[in-house]
Design a binder for these strands. Structure first.
Lengths: 204, 204
DNA sequence: AATCTCAGCGTACAACTGTACGCTAAAATA
DNA sequence: TATTTTAGCGTACAGTTGTACGCTGAGATT
C-alpha cells in the first residue's frame, strides 16, 4: 500500500505535463507540439506516452485544467490583497500581470485555445474564464449593490479587456508595457463608471 | 502586352489564396495547413507553389492583408449606414456580425493569428486592428468632442469587446447569439458613457 | 522565325509523424 | 513464495511533410 509504483506513475505524468508546458512559447503553440517531442523531453519512449494519456488532446485538456487552477488561485490572492486595503482595479490588474510574467505559457495556452481548433478546448477555456467572470460579478454585485445582470455584463467586459491586454503585454516590455497597463486601467474605469450608471438607473 | 501569361499567373495565385481560406474552419487553423494540401485544392503540383510564394508564411501574410482589406471595406459600409441615419452602436455591431457570417474564415484568421506563433503575423493583424481602432477614435473625437487620448482608449476598449464577442458568436446560433449581441451592446454603452464622462472631466 | 522566359510538372529524398505489437522487469497481490 | 499487473522500451511501418532538381511547352521578346 506504499504505492511506490503509483507514485512514480504520477511523477512521469507530471513530467509529461511539464514538458508540454515548456515547449509552449511565443513561437510554439499546443497544436504544433508532437507527441514524440513531448515524450522525449519528459524522458520516456514515445509509445509510453499512451500509458498516461490516450491522446495529445487529453494531455491538452489536462493542461487547460491546470492553468485554470492557477487562475483561480490567483483570484483568491487578489481578493486577499484587496481585503487588506488595496485599490480594487489596480490590484486586480497587477495580480493578473504577475500571472502573465510568472506563468506565460499557461496564459498562452488559455489565450490560444480559447479560439483554437478543438471545440472541447474552447469549451474548457470558456468554462475557466466564466469562473473568473462570475467571481468578479459577485464581487461587483455585493460591493456596488447593482443589478446582477448588469454586474455580469460589467464583469464580462472587464475580463475581456484584461485578457486581451494580457495578450498584448506578452509582446511588450518596460515603458510600452506601463503605458498599456495605464490604458487598461482607464478602460476598466470607463466600464465601472458606465456600468454603475446603467445598473442603478434601471432594474433589468 | 496582352499579358495572357501574367493573367493566368494571377489567377492561380488567387486560387491558392482561396484554397487556403477554404481550408480554414472551426477545426482547422492556418498553422495546420500544409503546403501540399493547399496546392492540391488549388489544382497545381506542390512544387509549383513556390512560383507564387516563397513560403506558407508569405501566403499567410497575404491572406491577413486580404482580410484586413475586407475589414476596411466593412468600416466604410458601416459609416455609410450610420450617415444615412442608423444608431451608431447597433449599426456597427450589426455590420461586424455580418462580416463574421459572410467571411467567417477571414475573421478566424485575424482572430487566431492575433495571438499566433509568428511575430510577423501578430504584427500584421495588430496593424489591421489598429486601423480599425483609429478610425473609430477619430469618429468619437469628432462626434463627442472629447479628448483624443481618451477617444483612443475608448475606441480600443470597444474594438476589443466587439472582436471577442465576434469570436464567441462563431460558436453560437439563434437565441444565444441574440443574447450575446444584446450584452455586447450594453457593454459598449458602458464604455461610451464612462469614456465620455472621464474625457470631459479632465484634459489628459 | 529564332530565341528567351518561366509557370507548372514529376521524381526523389530525408525527416518526421502517430501508433500497433510484443517484450521485460519490477512492483503488487495472493 | 508463486502469480499477476503494468510502466516503460524497442522495433517496425505506413503516411505525410517540405523542398531540391531538372524538364517541358507555351507565351513573350527580339
Amino acid at each position: 500500500m506504499a504505492g511506490v509504483r503509483a507514485q512514480q506513475k504520477l511523477k512521469t505524468r507530471q513530467a509529461l505535463i511539464e514538458a508540454a508546458f515548456n515547449q509552449l512559447s511565443a513561437e510554439h503553440s499546443f497544436s504544433n507540439l508532437s507527441l514524440r517531442e513531448v515524450a522525449r523531453e519528459a524522458g520516456i519512449a514515445p509509445t509510453s506516452f499512451y500509458r498516461h494519456f490516450k491522446d495529445m488532446n487529453e494531455l491538452g485538456l489536462t493542461m487547460v485544467d491546470e492553468a485554470g487552477l492557477t487562475l483561480r488561485q490567483l483570484m483568491r490572492q487578489a481578493r486577499r490583497r484587496i481585503a487588506s486595503g488595496g485599490s480594487v482595479i489596480s490590484t486586480s490588474v497587477l495580480t493578473f500581470m504577475e500571472f502573465i510574467d510568472n506563468q506565460p505559457n499557461q496564459f498562452r495556452l488559455l489565450l490560444r485555445e480559447r479560439s483554437g481548433t478543438s471545440k472541447a478546448f474552447r469549451s474548457a477555456v470558456a468554462r475557466e474564464i466564466k469562473h473568473f467572470i462570475l467571481e468578479l460579478a459577485h464581487y461587483l454585485e455585493n460591493e456596488t449593490g447593482c443589478d446582477s445582470h448588469h454586474a455580469y455584463m460589467q464583469a464580462e467586459a472587464m475580463v475581456t479587456i484584461v485578457f486581451t491586454s494580457g495578450a498584448e503585454a506578452l509582446d511588450l516590455e518596460g515603458h510600452s508595457r506601463e503605458e498599456l497597463v495605464e490604458r487598461l486601467i482607464w478602460q476598466l474605469r470607463y466600464i465601472s463608471f458606465g456600468g454603475n450608471h446603467y445598473a442603478q438607473k434601471t432594474n433589468s
